Simulated scan of single mutants.
Amino acid sequence: MNVDSGHRPQQWSHGFCKCGGSLGTCCLTCCLPCITFGRIAEIVDEGRSSCLSHGLLYGLLLTINFQWVYSCMYRKRLREKFGLPEEPCGDCCVHFFCEPCALCQEHAELKSRGFDPSKGWTGAPTAAPQVPPSMTK
């Protein structure tokens, strides 16, 4: 779902520095960000690639401190999919300067839209996604 230029972008369901509203997600992301990222990427890719493959590539890039480029690409795709604004700054800046906050916010966004990131794409909501009132004609 992409937003037409005539529509105002939706807002993120959780603030950037709010740990996604979940202490568990925050702890997991700080200790094992490859798992959180893999879950996000699998859903954004609509199951075309697995959490494991994304997590392994993220972990490999983490060893050379280049994982933020990979995760930045998925933040952009998630934003475009749900019509979210690029905030608090550009996608790459967000991931470069505070990767855990960015991943927690993205994880929380998927949960607020009915996905269960721990189940991957198989945890996708079966009902049609809810359109906020600001998006109706």
Rank of each mutant, 00 (worst) to 15 (best):
F97W: 06
Y58Q: 06
C101R: 11
G47S: 10
L84K: 05
Y58C: 02
G120F: 12
E99C: 07
C92W: 05
P117L: 05
G114N: 06
F115I: 02
K76M: 06
C98V: 08
P117A: 09
P117T: 06
P100M: 14
Q67Y: 05
C93G: 03
L57I: 15
H107M: 11
I40P: 01
Y70P: 00
T63I: 13
E87V: 14
L52D: 11
E80A: 12
A102S: 08
M73I: 15
I43Q: 13
E42Y: 09
R79Q: 11
E87C: 13
A108S: 15
V94S: 05
L78P: 01
S49G: 11
F115L: 05
R113Y: 10
L62K: 00
G47M: 06
K111R: 14
Q67M: 02
H107Q: 09
G123Q: 06
A41Y: 03
V94P: 00
P85N: 15
C93K: 02
F97E: 05
Y58L: 03
S118N: 13
E42I: 10
C72H: 00
D116T: 02
G55E: 10
M73G: 09
G47T: 11
L57A: 15
C104F: 14
R79K: 09
T122E: 15
L78W: 06
H95P: 02
Y74W: 09
S112W: 03
L78E: 03
K119A: 14
Y70S: 01
